[in-house]
């Protein structure tokens, strides 16, 4: 438990900053809705006349922009991206930092197994990710409720946040997997970020061209995107299972490779 609390304390400052970021994103994004709201239906018409590629880049797709939740759907894409970056950096950093900061010799000479180190660190990262998710949920509910007319936004938002949580878990597991198995833990964060950007760009490419739709399984950003969740009114069970599978496998990879490899000092 000492290691868990140590990690919680070490991550505290960055978590607060990320939460402030989430607040700014939700608040400022929804504030723009206020300005657009007065034009109402016409915005929806305007967007639908835009070229498909522009819509894809903006992330509007088939979202109903006349409702607060629909508009929030655009914002969600960016919140999801933020959450993914946070999770990935946390997952990679929490494992790699001991070797990067040369504290690995200190920690590894203590009577604690590598698996337990991993567990304590992942548990701390999980709590951080969960806090970020809940904070984002609260900010989202408040800022959407401010502009929502009649619709019930909480159930939609909690669906979106559940999806976001699964995406967070995937990137957390990916980050720690990369850091635990890589020969160069110092580069884990940058390698993970490259992977994340590739996944994000792929998700935009899929929006641009329907021919690429079969690739949607490769990028977690497509699994629970707002337009899908809000229109279906639920999370796709295929993607839920896929997410759980990915998290499971990556976590096992992280444990096994961290136990097997030499610590870089």
């Amino acid at each position: 438990m000492n290691l868990f609390f140590r990690e919680m304390k070490a991550a505290r400052k960055s978590l607060i900053l990320w939460c402030i970021g989430s607040f700014l994103m939700a608040a400022s994004g929804m504030a723009k809705f206020e300005g657009l709201d007065s034009t109402g239906e016409s915005l929806q018409q305007l967007v639908s006349t835009m070229p498909r590629s522009l819509q894809a880049v903006m992330g509007t797709g088939s979202l109903d922009l006349s409702t607060a939740v629909g508009y929030y759907g655009i914002l969600f894409t960016y919140l999801l991206l933020m959450a993914a970056i946070h999770s990935l950096m946390l997952g990679a950093g929490i494992i790699a930092k001991e070797e990067r900061g040369k504290t690995a010799e200190f920690l590894l000479s203590k009577p604690i197994s590598r698996s337990r180190i991993m567990t304590a660190k992942l548990a701390a990262a999980l709590v951080n990710v969960l806090i970020f998710n809940l904070v984002t949920f609260v900010f989202s509910v408040i800022s959407v409720a401010k502009f929502a007319k009649t619709e019930d936004s909480i159930s939609d938002l909690s669906l979106l946040m559940t999806g976001m949580f699964l995406v967070q878990l995937m990137f957390l597991a990916a980050g720690s997997g990369i850091a635990a198995s890589g020969k160069k833990p110092k580069r884990a964060v940058s390698m993970g970020t490259a992977l994340l950007l590739a996944a994000y760009i792929l998700s935009i490419a899929i929006d641009l061209s329907q021919k690429l739709e079969f690739l949607q399984y490769l990028t977690p950003f497509k699994y629970f995107e707002a337009k899908r969740v809000l229109i279906d009114g639920g999370l796709d069970p295929v993607f839920i299972l896929l997410s759980i599978g990915i998290v499971f496998i990556l976590t096992i990879v992280a444990y096994i490779s961290f136990n097997k490899r030499d610590i870089q000092v």
């Binding site: 070490a10 504290t103 010799e105 200190f106 000479s109 009577p111």
Partner: peptide, 14 residues
């Protein structure tokens, strides 16, 4: 490791 005390050549701490 419960019974080992180790002083690394380079000491780095948090």
């Amino acid at each position: 490791k419960r019974e080992i005390g180790y002083l690394p050549s380079e000491v780095f701490y948090y």
